[in-house]
Design a protein around this nucleic acid. Structure first.
Lengths: 161, 161
DNA sequence: GGGCTGTTACTCGGATATGTCTTGTCCGAGTTGTTCGGG
DNA sequence: CCCGAACAACTCGGACAAGACATATCCGAGTAACAGCCC
């Protein structure tokens, strides 16, 4: 069980988009070039974010993506679920019902105990990811980075908006 | 991102094996039949548990698997990692190093902030799974089940040890 | 000079191949219980 | 009747296909900026 590589990509992209001025757009092409990843495939992931209502897109020259809401209103979980889907990591197929000793038509009163444990762990994971917003992310990613590099990167991005 | 179906299978199998008397073995064939899953494929998962040191196997007639240690010493995480592998759910590929503005040879002082957040969530998930043992599982799975069904299932299993 | 229109170049979005991993199946090496023969 | 050895059947273990999903790529519909023309 491992997350798609797209998850890493779009999180980095969101960090960049968080730094953008209001109503400015950045194209997939530039985001892909900045991170050294395949443009067309990154595009698919950004489409998912757009459909999830996290990004807004614009066509034509100087088009691209921008955040749909304030960075403080977008959590890691939002981004990850947009890419990975929001299905639980554990799917209970109710194999206890296959028990040959089980009387026909018997109805289980509660969810399977295994599923409950797995879902609880899943929820702990989600809770941890819900607690971090893009605002936090920006702070974390800029900490300890030389100001010169930050400035240069910012200019690189602004030159393409 | 979704767990293998094998995870559900082996957890149910471990619950059965927890109920076995000391030094009694149960064959893959019977475990597969009880749960209504493909025998050969379940076998692969049980092999993983055996290699991980959670189960002990014996060959020949009346052979099969039994727990290698006390049910209270085996956690959900042990079982899951045996099947899924113990690689972190998030793999950081350090795409920040692809930043075109980054001076050559520059060395990052700390792990990427995104990776830190993801690993923390991963650890929360693991911690939650580490807290539940097979002893807890047995209790959960038997709660609320009619005693008649429990008795019948127990006899079904014992008839094949 | 200002406004309108046609063009152009650039964007996203979905449809299309390829590789890798999960899922499923098969067969062989090895061992244990059984049975049969001999003492 | 007891013991030992050969047999047979059953087990796990690893090697072998098929399908699903992640990865990667291509092309078309649509739009915004721009340039040129008319007023």
């Amino acid at each position: 069980m491992i997350l798609k590589s797209q998850v890493e990509w779009v999180l980095h992209c969101c960090a960049i988009l968080s730094a953008l001025p209001e109503n400015k757009y950045l194209a997939t092409k530039d985001l892909a070039e900045f991170h050294g990843v395949p443009k067309e495939y990154l595009s698919k992931a950004l489409q998912s974010l757009s459909q999830a209502g996290l990004l807004v897109s614009t066509l034509g020259p100087s088009g691209g993506y921008r955040l749909a809401k304030s960075p403080s209103d977008i959590t890691f979980l939002d981004v990850i679920e947009a890419v990975e889907g929001n299905t639980p990591t554990f799917a209970c197929t109710e194999i206890r019902q296959k028990n040959p000793c089980r009387p026909k038509g018997y109805c289980e009163p509660a969810p399977c105990g295994i599923a409950r444990v797995m879902w609880e762990a899943d929820e702990a994971w989600r809770q941890s990811l819900r607690a971090v917003t893009l605002t936090d992310l920006s702070r974390m990613l800029t900490e300890g980075v030389p100001p010169a590099l930050l400035q240069k990167s910012f200019e690189w991005i602004m030159a393409r908006t």
